[in-house]
Write a protein that binds this DNA or RNA. Structure first.
Lengths: 95, 95
DNA sequence: TGAACATATGAACAGTTGAACATATGTTAG
DNA sequence: CTAACATATGTTCAACTGTTCATATGTTCA
């Protein structure tokens, strides 16, 4: 159990960055390629690509190639659940 | 919405550290004082106190004083939900 | 009041991290 | 094959973070 808590912290570390959270949020509405994501976040391609890599490593997103583009998508719906509950905490806190 | 994503990242940042996650986990079984928590994590009192402060600031824990001791407890059950879903992601990933 | 205890706070230092820049890899069309 | 495009990777650096040590604050009890 102790070990799992370390893995858990590592997982949340991934959610603990605004760039990555915004990427995940963008992907809630469906798969997108790197260019789309760079535009959406208004960040350079390299930064986005680096962060997508981390998301991939944590199995939060999956990728498929289509021609020259790489399409990223959420890998399962835990992501949506986690974001949803986090949001609840935030909005309740503001009351 | 954009703003909320930054707050969300800040929230997860708090979960993204093993010391803090372990503290939250300890508190799942009920309120504990700082000494108990230091012993449980085998960390010095100062480090634990510093981290508890962050947890407090994020409204993840609440405190009450009883004599010389400060008793910390989870402030609501979002914490439990978040940990639970995170764990699910991890265990599914291992399959 | 003052000693002993429990916790909090401040400062400093090492380790980590995200972004930017440059460049490499991989793909398609001509 | 090669130019143009899309994405990935390596490196560097400033900013941030967690722990430790020292010390301050707050509480109880004799």
């Amino acid at each position: 159990m102790e070990d799992e808590l370390y893995d858990l912290a590592d997982l949340f570390k991934v959610f603990g960055d605004s760039t990555r959270v915004r990427l995940l949020y963008e992907l809630l509405s469906g798969e997108k390629n790197v260019g789309d994501l760079s535009d959406a976040l208004n960040m350079n391609q390299s930064a986005v690509s680096h962060q997508l890599r981390l998301l991939k490593q944590s199995d939060l997103v999956k990728v498929r190639r289509d021609g020259k583009s790489m399409y990223y998508a959420l890998s399962d719906d835990h992501v949506e659940s986690i974001i949803k509950i986090g949001m609840e905490h935030i909005t309740e806190k503001k009351k």
